[in-house]
């Protein structure tokens, strides 16, 4: 299938999600369940997208594993986004010379 078709569907759905409530809806969401669901969803999705994909992200599970642990430890100490990400890559790159 053409990549352009994929991109069109991607962009179309994403725009509709943004525009429909922003332009049309005026009511406030009252349901505690829905509010909780929408609050947790980004974390759940990011986690499900990260694991196990991160272990295959460098083409070598050992370097990826070292990078993953590096990222988790640095994120635990609340380092900036970019520092965590670059350190994970640097760790994976460094270990790449040993395996």
């Amino acid at each position: 299938m053409s990549v352009a078709v994929y991109i069109a569907v991607m962009a179309g759905v994403t725009y509709l999600i943004r525009v429909i409530p922003f332009a049309m809806v005026r009511k406030k969401i009252k349901s505690e369940f829905i509010k909780s669901l929408l609050y947790y969803m980004p974390y759940a999705i990011l986690s499900a997208m990260t694991f196990p994909a991160i272990f295959y992200s460098t083409g070598n599970t050992v370097t990826a594993g070292v990078g993953t642990v590096t990222a988790i430890v640095l994120a635990y100490f609340d380092l900036p986004l970019i520092a965590v990400a670059i350190s994970a890559a640097a760790a994976a790159f460094g270990v790449g010379f040993l395996v």
Binding site: I54, S57, T58, N60, G67, A71, A75, P80, F93
Partner: peptide, 22 residues
């Protein structure tokens, strides 16, 4: 060798987003 390592960057960012609130 460099781009392979950089493949982990976007996931590193995701981790940096969801670990601190966890």
């Amino acid at each position: 060798s460099v781009t392979a390592s950089l493949g982990i960057v976007i996931y590193g960012m995701f981790i940096a987003i969801f670990i601190p609130p966890s």
